[in-house]
Design a protein around this nucleic acid. Structure first.
Lengths: 343, 343
DNA sequence: CTGAAAGCGCTAACAG
DNA sequence: CTGTTAGCGCTTTCAG
């Protein structure tokens, strides 16, 4: 059913129907109600596609994600809450999964949708620098190096430090790191936090204890495995995100290493899955939902023609201690024992 | 940037560029590579909007939801997993929140997107009967009465019965019910399960113990409050979904009723939030992610021109006992005590 | 093998 | 107040 069907049925031109649809002036009351009646009767809704192609205004905000996984799903809950009552609707576009698409999915999708389908965009974990030229956009947890876009992220450096300090306070000295996606600033910051915390406590960073999981299931599992099968394996692992941490839990189980008795694991993100795994994961909370709320609020301001108060919002992170961390096992006689640090 | 820009730059017509874009036959190798070079250089991506308006094929699957809340977010995780490697991309369209939009959002959005933007649709908790005429579609947890669409839901009746039987086995006799959205078949089934379980145990259903929360925060809170301030208040409440159950937890806290000592609460859904609340909620799991997986798989089959093996998939439900339920408090001397049933 | 032209459903000037 | 006309960016006949 198209606008012409309505026009025919109502005995007017398509232009008139369009005017009624958009509540434009210049339609007599009688025509108006006649046309409206036909619209209601037929249940006609104008195609957002055709409309946007012509008018370049849709009242739809786009959220571009690489994949629908726990992080982005959590983000969407916040975005969904923030959009209520704004008059905008939300369109989430998923590039169709990890890996499959090459770097640059967000650029591709933005140009496929932008300028037409959506009035503004929120780009979650973009992989490359996103051009500022097109529609108003916000970057969430972006790639390394400043993008030109306004952005929201969280305090990854501090979060990572607190996580590692927690492990240190439990007496761990050999702490492995499961690194994240090398292109993301957040992952880089988490590694920096790990290094800082160790260095400040007089512990040399052992390159063998750093493996890249890249936030991908298989890679993370491999990385965890090589960490846990090291001759002098770490007594604790800090993973750059919860999914990698949960993967580490799996690998530990397969290797019959008890967590937390034989191995402590800390994650990052505090996705819901971190509570539901066995044992529940000690992790760094980064209030993902709030990121969604803030990103939508910022975009709404931009769309409203307002100036942004802050062009870079950084949300706080916080350690959440659950059951995947415990005091380090008594050290093997490789070096003189050091006193345990108090929590 | 449009296809004409590419055509100009490459010194060919738009038609030729289009052919290259779509890998159509009838382009010489040299022209092909020349045009492709320009496309790559400019980073051109054809507008999905313009393309779909003309060609009616987009390789995009639409998921229509009323709102992005825990249930739909969980559903999306499953859908996201199932789409990997299918060659399709996912577009989630949220009607913009609860209540705001009237009944029939799914019909409206379907006709706004359908036939053009998306090749097929998954409609989550539709409110009205959805016409089958348009594009291939799957209904998830639909309204009461059979819709013409293939559907996936879960065994709500049995789940509700098991939930109530759990409460009965703990010695509860006055069990309140916080009903769901009256238009959903699932909500109806959960109420039916509640009634059945009580009746089978020789307990008369007290209408005063049934309040409608309609899955909406405010309404659910009001309903819970009226239940818990009843002169002879129930010792347990079965809520038709987790969000209502969590709301009940809040109300109980406000009324200084201890859960589970003074009140047992059971939810339905097993959304991640049910683990994170205080106390963790005993609930009925309905593997929401699996619903997402199945719905996508079914739609993919439909899109592939295949016949569906099953036109109505019902997933199992399972009781998950956590800390919000406990033995009923000693009964007041209103009637002779009955022996406690074993679990 | 290539390009001109028509048209997808709609909106926005502009004439009548 | 109403209808005619010209596109939005793209694909698709169909001539050349």
């Amino acid at each position: 059913m198209t606008i012409s069907d309505v026009a025919n049925r109502a005995g007017v031109s398509v232009a008139t129907v369009s005017k009624v649809l958009n509540r434009r002036y210049g339609v007599s009351a009688s025509t108006m109600s006649k046309v409206q009646a036909v619209i209601d009767e037929l249940g006609f809704e104008s195609s957002i596609v055709a409309r946007s192609l012509r008018s370049h205004r849709t009242n739809v905000i786009g959220i571009l994600v690489a994949d629908l996984e726990p992080f982005s799903s959590e983000f969407l809950k916040g975005a969904g809450r923030a959009i209520h009552g704004s008059g905008y609707e939300l369109m989430v576009y998923s590039a169709g999964g990890p890996g499959a698409e090459h770097v640059g999915w967000e650029r591709r999708n933005l140009s496929r949708l932008g300028g037409t389908l959506i009035d503004g965009a929120i780009i979650v974990t973009p992989t490359v620098e996103t051009p500022d030229g097109t529609i108003p956009s916000i970057a969430v947890d972006p790639q390394r190096g400043r993008s030109g876009l306004p952005m929201v992220d969280s305090d990854n450096l501090k979060g990572a430090r607190v996580a590692v300090e927690h492990l240190l306070s439990l007496g761990h000295r050999r702490i492995g790191f499961l690194a994240g996606r090398p292109d993301l600033a957040s992952a880089e910051q988490r590694e920096a936090g790990y290094r800082q915390a160790l260095t400040e406590h007089g512990i040399e960073v052992d390159p063998a204890l750093i493996q890249v999981g890249a936030y991908e299931q298989e890679l993370a599992a491999d990385a965890a495995r090589s960490l846990l099968t090291l001759p002098d394996r770490p007594t604790a692992v800090f993973a750059a995100n919860d999914r990698s941490a949960i993967e580490t839990l799996e690998v530990a189980r397969a290797l019959e290493i008890d967590v937390p008795a034989g191995l402590s694991v800390v994650g990052f993100d505090n996705i819901p899955e971190s509570v539901m795994c066995e044992p529940p994961l000690t992790t760094v909370d980064q209030s993902i939902q709030d990121m969604g709320v803030r990103a939508v609020e910022m975009l709404l301001q931009l769309l409203d023609g307002k100036q942004l108060d802050e062009t870079h919002v950084t949300l706080p992170t916080e350690l959440v201690v659950r059951q995947s961390t415990a005091a380090a096992p008594a050290r093997r006689r490789t070096t003189s024992p050091r006193p345990r640090r108090p929590r």
